[in-house]
Simulated scan of single mutants.
Amino acid sequence: MKNIILIGYMGSGKSTIGKVLARELNINFIDFDDFLQMKEKRSIKEIFDLKGEIYFRNLEQKYLQEVLKSAPQSVISMGGGTPCYGDNMSLITNSNTTSIYIKVTVEELAVRLFKARAERPLLIHQDTPEKMDEFVRKHLFERSFYYNQAELKVLVDGRTPLEVAQEIKARLF
């Protein structure tokens, strides 16, 4: 079995769905953001604050290569920006993986992310629901080129993580 890589915008539910999918398939789950933070012994916010986004994106590429080489049959949830920098999407699509775009509408993402903006370095300044919607709309437009390269696309809105995981399982096997 190939590794399954979940990509999509921040707040789309990749980690939650990934855990459920891994349990359904009886394989390992790796949250790529947690993996990176464990390796660096710092939070993503600390890395952004201390070294900036470019440094962080270089770390992502380094650890993406590592996790793709070493992960044994796993569901791996990527950070929202991971596929969109350097040649990361090529690394994902050209390794022994199946990539899946966990797709959520802009409206749903804006609502989810507005509630959680304090924990996300890129969103800290989006201080009204309208600003969040505008930011997500623009950012998602820029990133959709990469996300749409995934082999499968699964729309999440209005569905439980278990329902999404079961759809993915059915489409894979």
Rank of each mutant, 00 (worst) to 15 (best):
A150N: 07
V75Y: 00
Q166I: 02
L59Q: 07
Q149I: 00
C84N: 12
Y63F: 14
R143C: 05
R23Q: 15
A118S: 14
R112K: 12
E142W: 01
P121Y: 11
Y63T: 08
F114R: 09
G81Y: 07
I168F: 01
M1G: 15
R159L: 12
E40I: 03
Y63E: 04
R120I: 06
S144M: 12
E46T: 13
K39M: 10
V75W: 03
E151D: 12
K169P: 01
S15H: 13
I76W: 04
S95L: 05
L50C: 07
V75M: 09
E119Q: 14
N88H: 10
D34A: 15
D87H: 15
Q166G: 00
S12C: 15
T160G: 01
Y101I: 00
G86S: 09
C84L: 04
L68E: 12
K131D: 08
N96Q: 15
L64F: 03
N96K: 14
P83A: 10
F48E: 07
S144F: 02
Y146N: 13
H125M: 04
A116I: 06
L6S: 06
I27P: 08
G81K: 04
M78N: 05
Q126D: 03
L6K: 01
N28E: 15
D31V: 07
G86V: 10
L172M: 09
K69M: 13
L162V: 15
I30N: 06
F56L: 09
Q61N: 15
Q126R: 02
N58I: 03
T16P: 10
A165F: 05
V20G: 08
T98F: 04
G13V: 10
N28S: 15
L172R: 02
I76K: 05
I54C: 00
E167C: 01
E53P: 01
S90I: 11
K51G: 03
P72R: 13
L6M: 06
F29T: 09
S70E: 15
V111G: 02
V75K: 07
L6R: 08
F48I: 04
L162Y: 11
I54Q: 01
R112V: 03
G11P: 00
I92G: 06
K19H: 10
A110Y: 01
R117G: 06
R120W: 07
M38R: 11
D49Y: 02
I7V: 15
F35P: 12
K69F: 05
Y101Q: 05
A116L: 08
L140A: 10
S74L: 04
E134L: 07
G11T: 08
L91D: 02
G8Q: 08
I5A: 09
K2E: 10
I76H: 03
Q149D: 03
K115Q: 15
I4K: 02
L21M: 05
S144D: 13
Y146W: 13
E142K: 14
G52R: 02
T82L: 14
S70F: 05
L64T: 06
R120T: 01
T93V: 14
Q73P: 00
L155M: 05
S70G: 11
K131E: 08
F135G: 09
P72N: 14
